[in-house]
């Protein structure tokens, strides 16, 4: 999963990225967006349009970005507050809608 959303998206949620993603894999959390690592096809279309440069790649992964990469994974693979199982791979963000929760790092930032 080379692409993920960093903390620069916190409380911005511009969502330009959603309009570009060809596979509908960018999900909306409470305070930021999250890219589903199992659904992203690494095309990079979202990175170019983010007005706050919040989308980063793990090729190469920088140390300041590492926690955000991990938090992005946790959004899908851990059990979020108010849910009883991980989101996993829902196969499209538009079908799921907004998720009223955040991964741990985003939630406490």
């Amino acid at each position: 999963m080379p692409f993920f959303v960093t903390g620069a998206c916190l409380d911005v949620l511009d969502k330009s990225c959603i309009e570009e993603c060809p596979v509908d894999c960018i999900y909306e959390g409470g305070r930021k967006m999250y890219i589903n690592p199992r659904e992203c096809i690494d095309c990079g279309a979202c990175e170019a349009v983010c007005p706050v440069t919040a989308i980063a790649s793990d090729l190469p992964l920088t140390e300041p970005n590492r926690p955000w990469r991990d938090d992005n994974v946790a959004f899908f693979e851990s059990v979020l507050p108010g849910r009883d199982q991980p989101l996993g791979s829902p196969g499209g963000a538009s079908g799921l809608g907004r998720v009223e929760a955040d991964a741990p790092l985003a939630a406490m930032s």
Binding site: E20, P22, V23, R38, E39, S89, G91, G92
Partner: peptide
Amino acid sequence: LGFTADLGPLTRWGLRIVDR
């Protein structure tokens, strides 16, 4: 305005599909 993509009809062909 760009494209969206999905496996569409292939999902009905009896193939084993996991995470698209």
